[in-house]
Design a protein around this nucleic acid. Structure first.
Lengths: 218, 218
DNA sequence: AATTTCTATCTTGCGCACAAATCAAGCTAA
DNA sequence: TTAGCTTGATTTGTGCGCAAGATAGAAATT
């Protein structure tokens, strides 16, 4: 399916950046990568352009492309945006969700519960992801779903960290239950609020701190 | 700043697609474009990759890249998403907007009013854009602002069409006033609701315009 | 000693050529 | 006649080389 080396290389590079193979500000040297992947510079250049387009790297004309990891501020902004988009998905999903999807949410939640009790972090993570993806889909808006998935994917490497920050898995489970309840009741505002709060409460505090620091500096 | 021909060509091609120079499904022939822009295929290929990354075109390996205009369904989905994102921006902006920004919104609105009375559609369009951009910025979230601008820009060629509808401009003005009021009051829910409605109406008007055009063609 | 200028080297941007894959006819066979 | 095969012509993907621009280090001037 993927016949172009450029795409394979782009995926490999993306993975490398996410798993810490490169650090913020590192220059992605075309020649070095070309030798490393045993291809010419051409497919490397195309792969780099893909990284730039997805925001993982930054290009400075005539200077090269550099890895661009989000700093604390941008990370909080991204999480806040994710929370808001999830809220939107919840709002729309409350009006459009199917009975089958509600049951799948229940199943995902049950699996989550089991994972929490069994201490299986990987399973928890996987089922949690399924839960959210179902909601994106049930918003009934393919474009919005695509955007939500894109941001979700972009935040993937940081989500585990975020889960550790908020710590209490069981509270997260209770929030999941409240979300499903609101969706089942078909209450858009409550669903949006529940989903937003599910991710964003401490992000909000962090952001207020950050923006107050920034405005104080001006 | 833009020393690379690929970027200039990408902008030109984007503009061409937006202004109707290409139609849905058209193949973007590398050789033809290379001759047309009087460059080699290399910068053309890089420009095409940018179009693909921004969703304006689609690439099929070994076959080429094709213009991909959104159909009626996707267009409605994009307008709905834009409405929701603007709602989010409004909600956050209600909590964070500065006094200076509120005054700028008033100024933009006044310019809009003048443009409506003077029948200057271009000026109206420009000031309307400024109005919305200020709100994106006042959401106080750079990442969200960037995403909002991206979608706003993508919808630009379609938003322009619906302005031609009779009476739309003055109705839009009243909505702007209500939005500023909610922002000034610092009421997040009211601001979100006002902005969501304001943009959602654009989508509906657009839908109306589309179907009227289609029925007129038959 | 510090700053500026100059030069040598490296890197990117672009043009060009070749190979593999795809498409379009024409041809053969059932 | 139509389905399938073959062959020639495009077209994309990739390798490679050159020139303009950028970087770093040496040399020179104050």
């Amino acid at each position: 399916m993927e016949l172009r080396r450029a795409d394979i290389i782009a995926d490999a590079l993306e993975e490398l950046v996410f798993t810490g193979g490169f650090h913020d500000g590192d220059r992605l040297d075309e020649l070095r990568l070309a030798r490393q992947f045993d291809v010419s510079r051409t497919p490397i250049r195309e792969a780099l352009q893909r990284l730039v387009a997805s925001g993982i790297a930054e290009q400075i004309p005539r200077r090269g492309v550099f890895v661009r990891q989000p700093g604390p501020v941008e990370l909080m902004e991204m999480f806040e945006t994710m929370a808001e988009i999830e809220g939107v998905c919840g709002r729309l999903a409350a009006l459009r969700i199917s009975e089958a999807a509600l049951e799948e949410l229940d199943r995902a939640n049950a699996s989550c519960c089991a994972a929490v009790e069994g201490g299986d972090a990987d399973a928890y993570y996987r089922e949690n992801e399924r839960f959210h993806h179902v909601i994106y889909h049930q918003a009934g808006n393919g474009f919005l779903e695509h955007e939500a998935l894109r941001l979700h994917r972009r935040l993937k490497p940081f989500r585990r960290l975020q889960l550790r920050l908020r710590g209490r898995m069981s509270q997260s489970m209770a929030e999941h239950k409240a979300i499903v309840e609101a969706l089942r009741a078909g209450d858009p505002d409550r669903a949006a609020e529940a989903l937003r709060g599910h991710v964003a409460i401490q992000g909000e505090k962090f952001h207020l701190l950050m923006s107050s620091l920034r405005s104080a500096a001006e």
